[in-house]
């Protein structure tokens, strides 16, 4: 049996800009009061609680700060194949985002490893516009 509730939600301006970036194939964070770049961006500063408005583009490569292996399930990234959930700090960002890393086994995962975005061909403004991350070719 399948039950599906077709919810949609409004994003607000900041997450909307982040998702717009994904649709356009770029990643944007937001600059905090202390100069740090928060990515994914937040509407309010985590230190001062003031609203933030300076969105900045960050890189499409980064490094794994921590990770966990999963056997994979339908509706998750990579559609049932095993993969690693990882926190990834993109170059130019000071905070990490959660996403999938596509490697064949946990032996190929390590903290500090370099990864890059694998984009979906069809993008619509959704976190899944990033299909997953993959090891950066040529990185050690």
């Amino acid at each position: 049996m399948v039950i599906e509730y077709p919810f949609s939600r409004t994003t607000g301006p900041v997450i909307g800009a982040f998702l717009t970036g994904l649709r356009e194939g770029v990643v944007v964070g937001i600059k905090g009061s202390d100069g740090r770049v928060l990515m994914p961006p937040t509407e309010y500063d985590p230190v001062t609680s003031e609203s933030l408005n300076e969105m900045v583009e960050v890189g499409q490569t980064g490094q794994v700060t921590t990770w966990s292996w999963t056997e994979g399930r339908r509706y998750q990234p990579l559609d049932g194949r095993p993969f690693a959930w990882a926190l990834i700090k993109l170059d130019g960002a000071d905070t990490a985002m959660l996403h999938a890393v596509d490697v064949a086994s946990p032996d190929q995962m390590s903290i500090g490893m370099r990864v890059r975005i694998r984009w979906r061909a069809e993008r619509e403004g959704h976190i899944r516009d990033i299909e997953c991350f993959e090891p950066e070719v040529g990185a050690s």
Partner: peptide, 10 residues
Amino acid sequence: MVRSVRTPAH
């Protein structure tokens, strides 16, 4: 700009 996102519960 993107203004809404699909979040189906399946």
